[in-house]
Design a binder for these strands. Structure first.
Lengths: 152, 152
DNA sequence: TCAATCCCGAGTTTATAGGTGGGAATTCAA
DNA sequence: TTGAATTCCCACCTATAAACTCGGGATTGA
């Protein structure tokens, strides 16, 4: 019932991008440094985020990454879903459509898992990167570094 | 972000006990059969549930397990917490008191994880075994077996 | 042209989930 | 009194996934 480092690191990285939002690309090296993540590993997380069109990249020297949409149009759910797969406490409520569980209508536990999923989704879909940036700015001024974040 | 089999099997097992609630003990063998779980594995799940006083055991032939309190006083949260540890998406919001995360007050991601935890807890603490039994009885009459449940 | 960057795929390590198996202790029922 | 049905206890095993690490190629600005 825990998020893996993929989700947690990815969220930190996306927040970092949002905080440094502008027209200059932000390099993975700098994100990795501020967030205390290995660059190599971060590469593996940014790839799917790019594929999902949440970020865009600029190659070559002085290159890096940029948000691909306004920060208020990227939710925590978007990010976590890309990195962790569909959200929900069990396979049977993560799958939708044809793959969905057949017992759904009869199974008492299924109903519980659905409620867990829905309440979780309600939270993460309503929080955007912009909310995070505003929250953060209310608390701190100036540049950020690794000590601003929980590491587990 | 998924529940492990410990939580899922344990919940099924506890529901089974609640459904067969009475003064005759229910053997692990019979639960395992109805729920499609290995007896050996189930033993490992029931042990902590007993230690947490959610069930009591009767040893020897014709022995088995019984709920240790009324079904409406055992919540899904009680069961899951025993089997999965404290609920929450990250270590930093599962721990409480002295072990809690120091960055809590500064960390934007921490705030998100707290909201996720709280909305999850809200759901699971309010659903009890009794609710499950009533829901189930509204849907089915008669004995249950493995095909009534999602298996993943 | 070269250093900084993204890009890509393979390999490694470690931990955990998800079991299995054996045997002792207890107790009911025949 | 004995034996079958049970809980109890603990050691071990195995497959998978998480969490990286590494090497090298492609791109591009200064």
């Amino acid at each position: 019932m825990k998020l893996s480092t993929r989700g947690r690191y990815g969220l930190k990285a996306m927040f970092d991008l949002a905080l440094n939002d502008g027209d200059v690309p932000v390099s993975l090296t700098s994100i990795a440094e501020r967030q205390g993540i290995s660059v190599n590993y971060l590469e593996q997380l940014i790839a799917p985020l790019k594929k999902a069109d949440l970020v865009k990249s600029v190659r070559g020297a002085q290159g890096g990454y940029l948000l691909n949409k306004p920060a208020d149009q990227i939710s925590v759910a978007d990010i976590l879903t890309v990195l962790e797969g569909p959200l929900g406490p069990t396979e049977c409520v993560r799958l939708l459509g044809d793959d969905a569980c057949e017992q759904a209508d009869y199974c008492v536990t299924h109903m519980i898992y659905e409620k867990m999923r829905d309440s979780l989704l309600q939270v993460v879909t309503t929080i955007t990167l912009k909310d995070m940036v505003l929250d953060h700015k209310r608390m701190h001024a100036g540049p950020i570094d690794t000590q601003f974040f929980c590491n587990k």
